Simulated scan of single mutants.
Amino acid sequence: MKSKLNKTLVLDIISFVARFYMAFVWITAGLHKINAYMDTSQSITAYKIFTPEFSGYLATIIGPLEIAGGVLLLLGIFLKQSSKVATVVLILFIIGMGQAWARGLNIECGCFGVQPSSTPTAAHFATSIARDFIFIFLTVWTIYRPFKKWAIHA
């Protein structure tokens, strides 16, 4: 009985960390972009996937969408659904960074705003991609075992 209680407690702690840490990540990423339209647009354009016009459109909406996703997790609204969307977005981010890395582009990922003092390298891409895989693990965890305590509508 005590072993089952301990296991449940550990799983609850992991679920708590997954939900609230990812809320923090999304809100932080969005806040870095919300008042940095030009930097965000240039970061998106640097990937050479979208036209400059479409990159500008994405730069306008990405910050507010990231904040909205973080708030949904924070408040516990549609935990599984918002985590599914987050997983897809993270996969798209990984694809974007992977193709930039494979093409030898020397760009900042722009995930948490532009860091003017950093020089992008292959290690930078590898670290960012590895970090996003950890984020995917946390979002998938929330899909299968959401932390419903303090949730408005799980």
Rank of each mutant, 00 (worst) to 15 (best):
T28F: 15
G30D: 07
L31F: 15
H32D: 12
K33R: 14
I34Y: 13
N35K: 15
A36D: 14
Y37A: 08
D39V: 14
Q42K: 14
Q42N: 13
Q42T: 07
S43T: 11
I44F: 08
A46S: 15
Y47S: 06
K48P: 05
F50G: 02
E53C: 03
Y57T: 01
Y57R: 06
L58A: 01
L58M: 00
L58I: 02
I61L: 03
I62H: 04
P64Y: 02
E66N: 12
E66P: 08
G69V: 06
G69Y: 00
G69W: 01
G70S: 12
G70M: 11
V71N: 10
V71F: 14
L74W: 00
L75T: 00
G76H: 01
I77L: 03
I77T: 02
K80V: 00
Q81K: 11
Q81E: 11
K84P: 02
A86N: 05
T87F: 11
V88I: 15
V88N: 12
V89A: 11
V89I: 13
V89D: 07
L90T: 03
L92M: 15
F93L: 12
I94H: 10
G96I: 07
M97P: 08
M97C: 11
G98A: 09
Q99V: 15
Q99W: 11
A100G: 03
A100P: 07
A100S: 07
W101H: 09
R103I: 00
G104T: 09
L105S: 05
E108M: 12
C109A: 09
G110R: 06
F112Y: 12
F112S: 10
G113S: 10
G113L: 11
G113I: 12
V114A: 13
